[in-house]
Amino acid sequence: MSKVYGFFYKLGAFIEKAAKKVASTAKVLWKKFVENFIKMPLRIMSHPIVGYTEFKEDKKGKLSVAIGMVLIYALLTIIRYNADGIVINAKDPTKFNSIQLLIYTVVPLIILSVANWSITTLMNGKGNMKQIITMGGYSYFPLIVFGIINVILSNFVTVDEAQIITLLSVLSFVLMGYMIFMGLVVIHEYGVAKAILTIILTILATAVILFIALLIFDLSSQIYGFLYSLYKEIVSRFF
């Protein structure tokens, strides 16, 4: 009997220990999550100069957090495709493509970051590639917050009240723009005029990148076509 009791006692102790460990780990993780994913972006939004200085100098901006932000936003976009209320949702459920939505979220960030980096390195910008990408990732924060509010709200509004949702989403994009602009100013240590100039040049660089990408795509398909016709010619002539 005592053996049985002993076993249960040991089991109980183990479970207690494990639960405590899980709880403490979860607490640490939650604390980290709140610290990195909520408090830091909020601090950047409320005090952009101080926030971004901490972000850069104290290494408080983390690439992993930025990637997490982008992935959360991608997930939110995918969920919103079907979960939005029918009052604002005019998307065709048969054309749902999660890969496409993921690409549409991630690719603009990468291209814009590369374009910005290639411009700012030439214009004495102090920020490096990692910092730019991290800053871009953090700027998805308002989109995520207002996106979550919108997806819930859209299921409880009528057509007349749907204006609120439009207002909120516009607000979220304005905040995102604000975060990016202040981020560029602080990270690259620019004045306002120079920051605006680099933004315009970044857009131009993006256009150039897209043009080259299309060119490469087109040329490679032409080369493929040429090689294929060559192969056909050889096959039908000698074999």
């Binding site: 029918i86 009052v87 409880f156 009528t158 057509v159 007349d160």
Partner: peptide, 17 residues
């Protein structure tokens, strides 16, 4: 909802809510 008529849906939903 089946007919994708959001105006009339809103009318009905407003009363329901």
């Amino acid at each position: 909802e089946l007919g994708h008529d959001k105006e009339y849906y809103s009318d009905a939903y407003k009363q329901y809510r």
